[in-house]
């Protein structure tokens, strides 16, 4: 824990220092920081707080975890073309994935440090839009998690029975079997005995996000839990399935949540694009 704080401190110093430099270090690139914020409707997310009026039944939930991975982050330049953000390797970013972590360890399955930014470099210029996916790149997603670098080495984010990671993890209460939870990742994956690896997943479940008007220096990507559960009856549960949605295609409680992420569910196309992420 100490080591991580020191490293984060060092990163802050480094980024402050970089602000002092000119935008391009002479190599045609500039550093970029993309800010994320977790909210529940109009309120900021605070780990362990109870939020009301959620979903179709106006449910109240004490939200105790709120984390997700993002990948393939790209910014839209003045010509309207998307260019990839080259991620800075650090405790929160590795192998093309960034863990956005709004929880502060308010339950046993969390971690005290939080992360609300994607940091990296892009070609020098100004940018006015963003797109990314909520997920972990295929190769990293199915690699051996026991030897993966941070932030892919967190067993609370592993989804071993599906052979990958939880792309999104939201928990409520004390994480008992009766508490509402949502875990999402790739499902229907196939393993290969010869290589030991995963060959394909029938439901990749990577949420595609495009926010056409987004200025990295002034705007924030907002993840709204209230929007995620819009229309979902959180007090009800399909008998015999986990409370909430553990990403299983056989759990009908997942259907409205997948729809709000713009993901197909059980063969049905979503009604539109995702509504979980927006710009503030």
């Amino acid at each position: 824990m100490k080591r991580r704080e020191i490293m984060l401190g060092a990163l802050c110093v480094a980024s402050v220092a970089s602000l002092g430099c000119s935008d391009d270090g002479g190599d045609g690139t500039q550093e970029v920081t993309i800010r994320f914020a977790g909210v529940v409707g109009t309120e900021p997310f605070v780990c362990g707080e109870t939020y009301d009026n959620l979903g179709a039944d106006d449910s109240s939930l004490e939200i105790s975890d709120f984390r997700f991975y993002v990948q393939s982050v790209e910014l839209k330049n003045q010509s309207g073309d998307y260019v990839p953000v080259a991620l800075t390797e650090n405790d929160w970013q590795a192998e093309g994935a960034t863990l956005i972590d709004f929880e502060d360890g308010c339950t046993d399955l969390g971690t005290e440090p939080m992360n609300t930014t994607v940091t990296g470099t892009v070609p020098t210029g100004s940018y006015e839009g963003i797109r990314f996916e909520m997920g972990v790149p295929f190769e990293a997603n199915h690699d051996n998690p026991s030897t993966a670098p941070s932030p892919l080495n967190l067993t609370s984010m592993h989804w071993d029975w599906q052979g990958g990671f939880k792309f999104l993890r939201i928990d409520s209460g004390t994480l008992s079997p009766t508490d509402w939870r949502m875990h999402l990742g790739s499902t229907g994956c196939d393993g290969d005995q010869l290589s030991g690896g995963t060959t394909a997943c029938s439901a990749p479940n990577r949420t595609e996000v495009e926010l056409e008007s987004f200025a990295p220096e002034s705007d924030t990507v907002v993840a709204d839990l209230a929007a995620l559960v819009e229309g979902a009856a959180l007090d009800e549960n399909q008998s015999g399935t986990p409370v909430g949605c553990m990403g299983g295609p056989a759990d009908s409680d997942c259907a409205p949540l997948f729809n709000n992420l713009g993901l197909p569910f059980a063969g049905n196309a979503p009604s539109g694009a995702q509504i979980f992420f927006s710009v503030d």
């Binding site: 399955l109 026991s146 067993t155 609370s156 592993h158 052979g163 196939d190 393993g191 030991g196």
Partner: peptide
């Protein structure tokens, strides 16, 4: 489960799995 073809990976399921909890070691690595 078509995804689980190696015992090394399968062992992580009872150790760290949360649904259901078996050995219950998630986040306790």
């Amino acid at each position: 489960n078509e995804a689980l073809v190696r015992l090394e990976r399968q062992a992580l399921v009872p150790m760290f799995g949360e649904n259901p909890v078996e050995l219950g070691m998630a986040n306790m690595e």
